[in-house]
Design a protein around this nucleic acid. Structure first.
Lengths: 124, 124
DNA sequence: CAGAATCCTTCACGATACTG
DNA sequence: CAGTATCGTGAAGGATTCTG
């Protein structure tokens, strides 16, 4: 029987926490959700879909996801350049969980906003 | 039939994005996971479980979660003070999704570390 | 087009000290 | 004990410019 080493994100020095920090992140959630919904996508299209993201941040996010093995980068030898990204099988295992977060935010924003208003009235 | 206003986290100015930013966050994931697993918890116990978190950050995280209606704060009139936190019903709807992220990080950290090593060898 | 490089601002976070 | 207040640092993120 294979022995699972017990990693825990609750332990400050556990490497799994660095991975959690990468995936429990708003840009990651949005990138993985969009890539999972659309399959192969160009950098520019991704940038357009993720309204408001800067080129720098998208590049960094994608590079980090690539480094962690969640995204693959396909460079086409063309002019002008075309670079496409897609989820790896590993990355796709995150699609449902991260899409769930995006959906949760959209479905419950009314309740959240109401709660914020109540809180802010009670306090300063 | 009730009409769902179409909020989208992909729209830069949509308020749901502020909510996504709050929940798609490593501290939130850890706090909600631990609170969901243990029910009512004291501040100090929470601080101990979330190894490495500073008091300031835990306080801020809990206050933001309370403001968004995900956590309730119970203050007991005792000396020394005792303050307990628990998930609201709304907050509990996030328990499974956020726990899934923590579990994912732990279960896949070996693959992620291997991918990072390969990436770093190929590049600088 | 897809970035790399640069600069700058803001924020997250930690450490420390203090208080009811 | 559970904070608050203050300060300092590094990282996150944006705007702009440049290039193959």
């Amino acid at each position: 029987m294979s022995q699972m080493p017990d990693f825990s994100v609750l332990a400050a020095t556990c490497p799994s926490r660095t991975s959690l920090a990468r995936i429990a992140n708003k840009w990651t959630a949005m990138v993985v959700s969009v890539l999972g919904n659309n399959g192969l996508m160009r950098f520019g299209d991704l940038r357009t879909r993720l309204d408001g993201i800067s080129g720098k941040v998208l590049t960094e996010t994608l590079r980090d996801l690539e480094r962690d093995g969640l995204v693959t980068r396909h460079v086409h030898a063309e002019i002008p350049p075309r670079v496409e990204y897609e989820l790896t099988p590993l990355g796709f295992t995150l699609h449902a969980p991260l899409l769930a977060l995006c959906t949760w935010a959209e479905e419950h924003i009314t309740e959240v906003l109401a709660s914020r208003e109540r809180y802010d009235v009670r306090n300063g």
